[in-house]
Amino acid sequence: MRRPTPAQTAGPYYSLGLDWWQAHPITHEPPAGAAICVRGQVLDGDGAPVPDALVEIWQANGAGDYPTRSAAAGEGFGRVSVDAEGRYTFLTHKPGPTTPQAAPHIHFTLLARGLMNPLVTRLYFADEAARNHRDPALARVPLARRATLIAALTPTGYCFDIHLQGPLETVFFDV
């Protein structure tokens, strides 16, 4: 077996190389899921906004299927740089459950100066409590920390803040 190439930080100038592919509305066919807005803020250990982070999402369509290998390029993938207040917004479809046991979720990957390795987490939906309760990935998260992965439903969409440190530190996964 070959050893995997180690990661290095994306550094402060990642937008030069990565902003060419901007977040886009995810347009699965058929658009079985309802259109949703997901927004949030990236915060550091002082609770201060992180103004230079890149947020990537990867998700299934409303039927719970990931894009096939013949799907349009970039389908199911979104990417956005946060603004000066560390805020991001995605317009997408709510994914369906990918297995009978799984709760609907969106994969998040975070890159930034100061992060030696990409951070991987998941957004779950507050209005899916019953499914969340039996989701096998959430089951691996200590009960007290599960709330960090649940996006609140607000009048303007789902809110999913990412806390890099602190009492509300978001759960990150080793994938």
Binding site: D44, G45, D46, A48, V50, A112, R113, G114, L115, M116, L119, V120, R140, V141, R145, L164, Q165, E169, T170, V171, F172, F173, D174
Partner: peptide, 9 residues
């Protein structure tokens, strides 16, 4: 101030 303190799951 950016590195998570808890081990990744």
């Amino acid at each position: 101030k950016r590195a998570p303190q808890a081990a990744a799951i």
